[in-house]
Design a protein around this nucleic acid. Structure first.
Lengths: 73, 73
DNA sequence: CTGTAGACTGGCGTCGACG
DNA sequence: CCGTCGACGCCAGTCTACA
């Protein structure tokens, strides 16, 4: 499975767990709302720095972000 | 600490564990040699797809790549 | 609230070359 | 073997707007 899709799905999972809309989440992370939509749908090849912003907004660590079944193969 | 530096250090660590030169490693990953140099030195903001190529060449998973002390804070 | 589209700027990623 | 440089195409990331 495409890495962009895996990351997008994980972001959406974490965002919904926080009960935030894409707009509120994007604002919290300090990034563009339409980009969050694109990334969640696996349409964009995200960079390390932007992913860090998203991970911080998700109130999680890099290690935990990738500590899921999909990222262990 | 900058995320780019953390990732660069981790890549260098894994590459040297495999006993590969930057050139051999770049070839194995299918990417440019000079870019490996830049990334290892934290000078470039790498994308998810390229990082995936590097992780595969490192013979490791995304989960394990980030399963280190530096990525747990 | 979300998806998508168009337009735009900066920087990713490649390549050849040199110390 | 590695770092760095210049050049360059293409896409990351932003913004506005509409369904």
């Amino acid at each position: 499975m495409d890495i962009k899709l895996k990351i997008g799905a994980r972001i959406k999972e974490l965002r919904t767990e926080l009960g935030l809309s894409q707009e509120a989440f994007a604002y919290k992370a300090g990034i563009d709302r339409t980009y969050v939509s694109d990334v969640e749908n696996g349409r964009r090849n995200i960079s390390a720095e932007l992913l860090e912003k998203i991970i911080i907004a998700s109130e999680i660590t890099f290690a935990d972000f990738f500590n899921t079944k999909e990222f262990k193969k």
